[in-house]
Design a protein around this nucleic acid. Structure first.
Lengths: 239, 239
DNA sequence: TCTCGCGACGAACAGTGTTCGTCACGAACA
DNA sequence: TGTTCGTGACGAACACTGTTCGTCGCGAGA
């Protein structure tokens, strides 16, 4: 313990110790995201993050108000990875679609980070950046500010909630100890089909008769279906 | 401790003890929902439910696999309160709309129970009952089974996610110690407006210029807006 | 009447988020 | 240069959480 301070340590050792000691909000958030990526949302605890930084949980509270704030910061940091092309109102439908798909891609690339999405009202800088982009696109398209505001709100909720739903499946997959989403998907669809098929046909005629249709589409297809539903609905609001 | 067993207790005492001792899944679920209604989702713990039943938490595990299952059961029990009129395919848009509004009404009438909505894949009997109703309505309307299945899926997600978002606000309101939703709403809208107004107009031109529109609609109006967006989109799928 | 199984349950385990008090270190000031 | 001072690091502890284990007593079946 004391040897590091009494005897001048070799330079590389010192550099490392300094890196370890210089805690900062950014370092904590990055570490938290790394833990989440590697071990999932449930494994993300203040102790786990602190351990990764070689310290105790109390040290984090100088830079982060609590776990809720940490989750918000991690989530907003992930939103920062969303790449948004220059807005072109003439192609607004296409660009809104691309934004939603890109957002989903980023969210699903970070394990079940989406479980932090709906836990609070997003208000970080990157959340604002995305909101500004979508709002500008919708107003540029010709929607009234009111419609654009509502469209932004509903689109954001849709993207978040779909990613959230996906993250629940991710957590289930992880809990079941499965390797990849392929194995989980076939397994889950299979049990779902068996379950629907086993239902009494007199009480659940429509479900029983449409098992194939009910399990036909995967997560991405369902996401796109709802997305296009919303975009088409917004387009219909144009004068 | 031992006095109850050695000396025969008076009959009314015995009767009471019997009532207390006859645990059942239904009793546990009802008690859990009562706790949730009165004290909110965060206060709902196995210990709290057990305490309400005059016992320890270990006693619950004979009737309920764990907290996750208890939450699922409570959620499904709430879904059982959704009243569904006889389906009339000719008025399917109206009835789908009524279903969604009724579902939201029921969910918001039980504090922030909606926070249990998206934690798992709903598969309880009442969830199935609602799904059967919606699916039948959409197929009866003339949608293909594929469109009806996707519509059911997206509608369910939409209703759940909106209620979930509302429950987050509920929890925030409760945490802030506010009395009713009115106080919270004005407070929240006010701070949101101030926040949007304080943003640099050069980086967030659209948000800055449309603060009024952004905060114009309350939760219910936003819910109905998105709901009608989806219903109109589904109607457009009809041949 | 005796036995046996099952449910009730006290205690404990392994975790959680968070707070308090102390302590060392680096910067600012005399 | 010497000394104070404040801030951040951090060990320990608190009050919880969900869950499991082992015991113990009661009621039903033999």
């Amino acid at each position: 313990m004391g040897s590091n301070t009494e005897v001048p340590p070799p330079p590389w050792r010192k550099a490392r110790a300094q890196v370890r000691k210089q805690l900062s909000q950014e370092l904590i958030v990055d570490t938290g995201l790394r833990v989440l990526d590697a071990e999932g949302f449930d494994a993300l605890s203040m102790r786990r993050v602190a351990q990764e930084l070689g310290t105790g949980p109390a040290s984090l509270y100088a830079h982060v108000a609590g776990k809720d704030e940490l989750l918000e910061l991690i989530y907003d940091r992930v939103l920062g990875e969303i790449r948004l092309p220059d807005p072109d109102p003439a192609r607004w439908q296409e660009q809104i679609r691309a934004y939603a798909i890109e957002a989903q891609r980023v969210l699903t690339s970070h394990a079940d980070v989406a479980r932090a999405a709906m836990a609070s009202i997003p208000s970080g800088p990157n959340s604002l950046r995305v909101a500004e982009y979508v709002l500008g696109l919708l107003i540029g398209a010709g929607l009234t500010p009111r419609d654009a505001s509502l469209g932004l709100d509903r689109l954001s909720l849709y993207v978040s909630s779909d990613a959230y739903e996906g993250s629940v499946h991710y957590a289930r997959m992880k809990a079941a100890g499965m390797s990849g989403p392929g194995e989980y998907f076939t397994q889950f669809i299979g049990s779902l089909a068996r379950y629907f098929g086993s239902l009494p046909a007199d009480r659940f005629p429509y479900i029983s008769a449409n098992v194939d249709a009910l399990i036909a589409d995967d997560g991405e297809a369902r996401f796109l279906y709802g997305l296009d539903l919303i975009i088409a609905g917004l387009a219909a609001k144009l004068p």
